[in-house]
C-alpha cells in the first residue's frame, strides 16, 4: 500500500513539473497561437542562471533567484523580438520549426558556456539530510512539495488573472482577434512581448525548481518540454486548468505504467494512451469543440 502511495506521489511530482512547464506553453499559445518548442530550453536556462549566481557568484539563494528571473524576462523579450515577431503572420508550421531551431541554438549555446559536466544545485529547503520527510512509509521530497505548491498557486493566479483582471481580459481579446484588439486600443505588441517574458520566467522557474532533483545539463529541458507539450494537448490546448490536469495525468500515467507494465516502455504506454484519448476526445479535457462554419 505504501508503495502504491509512493508511486502515486512520484507521478504527481513528475506531473507537477510537466504542468509547470505546460503553463508557459499555454500562455504563449493563448496570446499568439504559437507552439513554442523552445519552452523546455527556458527551463534549462533558468536552472543555469540560478546555478551561476548561487554556486558561481555565491549569492544568497533568494537574491540569486530574483536576478535570474530578471534575466529570464529579458531573454523572453529578446525571444519574442527575434523569433515570434518576424513570424507573427505566418502559419503554425514555420513557427514550430523556428522555435525548434532556437532550441538547438540555446541547448548548444549552454553547452558551450557551462560545459558538459552535469552540475548540482542545492534544494530550496535543506532540513535534515534526506531533503524530505517519510510519512506512513511514503517519502515526501520537500522540493517536489514546493513544486506542486508553486504550480497550484501560479495556476490560481493565472486563472484569476484571465478571468477577473482587465489586463487578463485584454490578453484574451488579443488571442481571439488581434486586429479587433488593436482597434480597441490595446497595445497588442507590448502585451504579447509581456506574455513571452512571463512565459519565459515561468519556464525558467520550473527549471530552477527541478534543478536540485534532475541536476543541470544542457539537454535537461528537452524531455520536460516534450512532455509539457503533450500535457497541454491532453488538457485541451490553450486551457490553463487543462495544462495542470494534463501534466498531472501524464505524470501519474507514466509512473503507474512504469510500476505495473514496464519501466522501459512507460513513455510508450503514456503516449499510446494520450493518442487513444485524443482520438476519443479530440478536444482534450477542457477544450471546446470548434466546428468550422461553411
Amino acid at each position: 500500500m505504501a508503495s502504491i502511495g509512493q508511486i502515486l506521489l512520484a507521478g504527481l511530482s513528475l506531473g507537477s513539473v510537466y504542468a509547470l512547464t505546460a503553463l508557459g506553453f499555454v500562455l504563449i499559445y493563448r496570446a499568439t497561437n504559437v507552439v513554442n518548442f523552445a519552452q523546455g530550453e527556458f527551463l534549462m536556462l533558468g536552472a543555469y542562471f540560478l546555478f551561476t549566481f548561487v554556486e558561481g557568484a555565491k549569492l544568497n539563494y533568494g537574491v540569486a533567484a530574483v536576478i535570474a528571473i530578471g534575466m529570464l524576462g529579458v531573454f523572453g523579450l529578446l525571444f519574442a523580438l527575434g523569433i515570434y515577431y518576424p513570424l507573427r503572420n505566418r502559419s503554425f508550421l514555420p513557427v514550430i520549426i523556428a522555435t525548434i531551431g532556437a532550441s538547438i541554438m540555446f541547448q548548444n549555446g549552454a553547452l558551450a558556456i557551462w560545459g558538459s559536466s552535469p552540475e548540482r544545485l542545492r534544494p530550496v529547503l535543506e532540513i535534515g539530510g534526506s531533503g524530505g520527510v517519510t510519512l506512513g512509509g511514503v517519502f515526501f521530497n520537500y522540493q517536489y512539495v514546493i513544486i506542486l505548491a508553486v504550480t497550484l498557486v501560479l495556476m490560481a493566479v493565472q486563472y484569476a488573472f484571465f478571468e477577473f483582471t482587465l489586463l487578463g481580459k485584454k490578453t484574451q481579446a488579443i488571442s481571439q482577434d488581434k486586429d479587433m484588439a488593436r482597434l480597441l486600443g490595446i497595445p497588442v505588441t507590448g502585451m504579447i512581448a509581456l506574455t513571452f517574458m512571463y512565459s519565459t520566467v515561468l519556464g525558467g522557474l520550473a527549471g530552477m525548481l527541478v534543478a536540485p532533483i534532475f541536476f543541470l545539463q544542457h539537454n535537461m529541458g528537452s524531455i520536460p518540454g516534450l512532455k509539457a507539450f503533450s500535457a497541454s494537448i491532453i488538457g485541451g490546448f490553450g486551457d490553463v486548468r487543462g495544462a495542470i490536469v494534463g501534466g498531472l495525468a501524464l505524470g501519474v500515467l507514466e509512473s503507474f505504467g512504469g510500476a505495473f507494465i514496464s519501466t522501459v516502455y512507460k513513455d510508450a504506454f503514456a503516449f499510446l494512451l494520450v493518442i487513444i484519448f485524443l482520438l476519443v476526445r479530440p478536444q482534450g479535457f477542457f477544450g471546446e469543440k470548434v466546428g468550422e462554419k461553411a
Partner: peptide
C-alpha cells in the same frame, strides 16, 4: 531485473520493485 532508459528522471517504480 529492471531496465531503465537513459534520461529517466523518476525511478520510484524501479526502487519499489527492487524493494519488494
Amino acid at each position: 531485473v529492471k531496465a531503465i532508459n537513459t534520461g529517466d528522471k523518476d525511478y520510484t517504480a524501479v526502487v519499489t520493485a527492487v524493494k519488494n
